[in-house]
Amino acid sequence: MNRRHLLAALAAAPLAAPRLARAQGWAPDRPVRLLLGFPPGGASDAAVRIIQPRLAARLGQPVVVENRAGAGGNIAVEAAARSAPDGSTMVSANIGTLAVNPALVRQMPFHPIDDLAPLSLVFNATNVLVVQAARPYRSVADIVAAAKARPETLVYGTGGVGSPGHLCGIRLDDLAGIRTVAVPYRGGGPQMLGLLAGEQDFSFSPLGNVATHVAAGTLRALAVTTTARAEGLPSVPTMIETGLDGYEVLNWDGIVVPKATPAPIRTVLGDAIRAVLAEPEVVAAFAQRGLTPRPTSEAEFAAQLAADSTIWQGLIRGAGIQAS
């Protein structure tokens, strides 16, 4: 009898979330697409793959991840912005795509605020300034000195134009008074392969992407871009500690939907995302990759986007960086 009760409870468990969704006024009646503007191998893809099955369980429908890499994430976000506002399509996008690209891309195919509605932020990531072990640089000061001696020759890789790694480089140039060269790749995974292959002098990459390489000695960590040291790299200083006062670059991802998506649908999707991000297994899986879950309300996400848009678009235009 106990075994039958247990099996019945397990069979009913996946139905609990859809019933709750219907009670809130909406439940998906078809698979939900979750678009991602970057290829596999980066922090964004890792986070999406972690939450995918748990979102599916809570929504009562499969959640299908589609990697649509290119244009700094714009291809995937444009596709989502133009999709039907019926809850069947979401897109994961980062600070670069939503807050920075409007200043870097001359003809943006969408407007981050007018065409999209925020559901929740997903994570914050710690970026790390790393160099290949064969490179001579052993401190941020070494990189700054080399860049001053040879302006516009030191190359750093990014996960795309306007990506968090690109923002880190822009901030370094601004505060250190140097000029380095950003080389965009089609995402964090390809960028990391290029770094390991010796194609770059340095890189700003998420902690989860570099930790194993730092431990193995193939990469050397010089600094982190947060205001406090990272738990995973306690001996590595912050950029501020290296002498660059005011240096901080946040690296976040969030999930958005088409602007016209009705409030009941946004509520169900947002609640599911926030609930998944609070699950202990998700918190642990994120931590292994150097990510911190960041469930937020729609308003909190919107405020973060507005603040970062003001800061970064002003810095980019003030520095005379030309839109492509």
Rank of each mutant, 00 (worst) to 15 (best):
Q322R: 15
V65E: 10
R317Q: 13
R179Y: 01
I95T: 01
V130L: 07
L35P: 01
D114I: 01
P264W: 09
A80G: 10
D142H: 14
T89S: 06
I50S: 00
P206H: 11
G87W: 14
D271Y: 09
L195N: 05
S139K: 05
V224R: 03
D115P: 00
G70I: 12
R179Q: 11
A76T: 00
I143A: 06
G246A: 01
G60T: 06
W252S: 00
V210F: 09
A133S: 13
G188M: 14
N94W: 00
A145Y: 07
L269V: 10
H166L: 01
L7P: 02
M1I: 10
S163D: 06
L59V: 05
R3G: 00
R33I: 03
P293K: 09
P206K: 07
F110I: 01
R135K: 14
D271G: 06
A278V: 01
C168M: 04
P112K: 03
S163L: 06
G72N: 08
A145G: 09
V282E: 05
H5A: 15
V91L: 12
G189H: 09
T238A: 03
G189E: 10
A17F: 07
L10G: 00
F286M: 10
G25N: 15
E152V: 09
D142N: 12
P280I: 05
G165A: 04
I51C: 08
A285L: 11
E279S: 04
G25C: 14
A221I: 11
P53Q: 11
G87I: 07
A287V: 05
S324R: 13
T158A: 09
V214W: 06
V131N: 08
L154S: 10
A12M: 08
I178Y: 03
H5M: 14
W252P: 00
T212P: 01
P109E: 06
N124R: 12
A9I: 12
R68M: 15
G198E: 11
I321Y: 05
V236L: 13
T261S: 05
V91C: 11
R3P: 00
A323C: 03
P112A: 07
W252T: 02
L121W: 03
I255D: 03
E300H: 04
I50E: 07
S92M: 05
P53D: 12
V161M: 11
T310V: 10
A13K: 02
A56W: 10
D173G: 06
R68N: 13
L116G: 02
P151L: 11
R317P: 01
A46H: 15
L59W: 13
R150S: 14
E281Y: 03
D115S: 06
Q322T: 15
